[in-house]
Simulated scan of single mutants.
Amino acid sequence: MADVYHEGERAVQSRAGVLDQAGFSAGAIHARIPDVAQDFLQKQVILILGATDRHGQVWASLLTGTPGFLRAEGETGLVIDAHPVAGDPLHPLFAGSDGPVHVGMIAIEPASRRRMRMNGRATTAGAGIRVDLDQVYANCPKYIQKREPRWTPTSPASPLRAGRLQDSQTDLITRTDTFFIATADRNGNADASHRGGNPGFVEVLSSTRLRWPDYVGNAMFGTLGNIECNPAAGLLFPDWETGSTLQLTGTARVDWDPERAAAVPGAQRLVEFAITGVVEIPGSSPLRWSAPVYSRFNPRAVQPEAPDHASLGSAKL
């Protein structure tokens, strides 16, 4: 079987000492959609899509729809009856004739703590998107908070753009229990992944710097492997209560210092993120979600100190 990992993933797996485990996990990566996965996709209402924009910046976007808006087309095709909303940084990629676009995707069902990752090449198909898939694989349910959705019809407001965080956005991040990260390898092949933990697991170091722990996972190191080759990354923070989305783009680096990791419960290593762009879209999603039931796998989070507003600045969008 051909090696499913690229050189960045192999380098990180080697440094972390998990090459054997990574070899075992590779068996979960397929080039086709299994029947059970086709059924799963048909029931989903959200999809996170990661890609590189026309300016070379990586973003993660939220797509929503009623059950059936995602569907398999054959064994290696995915049809998405949605585009990123107007104002989303990735909207222009699918509003014209761009393509094919390398995309990484994750379909996630918080209510059942199930998720499915897919990577491939996307083209605009009318009001939707068609993706020719290269990789399909399920992930374990660790660190997913259980939530139930409900629909609240809404229209996205105009996006708020800046180069740094403002106070309300800092508050959202410091109380978040879930975010999504998009990355790409040196050839532009994109990936989207989930990160979860107890509130406080993401630290706001300043208005342009974040840090979070990297917990024990499946040893594939798709995200960190991409960062090893290409530091560009995009983060998506959903506001589960209001339907707003906060998107960040910038660069990521892995801190391998064991002493600094030891100071954070559950951390195998730390990831730092330097923000270069911020987009907030109020009412981006018509979904509202119930209060979370936290995963039993979440390590205890270090309680954040009160923000230093002098350090954070008072950037207004």
Score class of each variant (00 low, 15 high):
26 A>S: 15
97 S>D: 15
115 R>G: 06
310 A>W: 09
36 V>T: 09
49 L>D: 04
240 W>E: 07
235 L>N: 00
17 G>D: 04
122 A>T: 09
4 V>D: 14
164 R>A: 08
47 L>E: 04
305 E>F: 00
200 G>K: 03
126 G>S: 14
192 A>T: 04
100 P>G: 08
116 M>W: 12
63 L>M: 11
98 D>N: 06
220 M>N: 15
230 N>E: 11
236 L>C: 00
125 A>P: 13
17 G>E: 04
147 R>W: 04
173 I>Q: 03
309 H>F: 01
264 V>R: 05
122 A>S: 10
49 L>H: 03
182 A>D: 00
143 Y>L: 10
159 P>R: 08
247 Q>F: 01
142 K>D: 11
251 T>P: 00
57 Q>Y: 00
139 N>W: 05
187 N>L: 14
73 E>M: 13
31 A>R: 15
234 G>C: 01
27 G>W: 14
311 S>I: 13
103 V>S: 02
227 I>M: 10
239 D>H: 01
70 L>A: 15
119 N>W: 05
312 L>K: 00
112 S>N: 09
249 T>H: 01
291 A>W: 10
121 R>Q: 11
250 G>A: 02
173 I>P: 03
224 L>M: 10
226 N>W: 11
186 R>T: 05
151 W>M: 14
281 I>W: 09
51 A>I: 04
50 G>V: 04
152 T>C: 11
63 L>E: 10
214 D>F: 08
245 T>W: 02
133 L>R: 12
92 P>Q: 08
245 T>I: 07
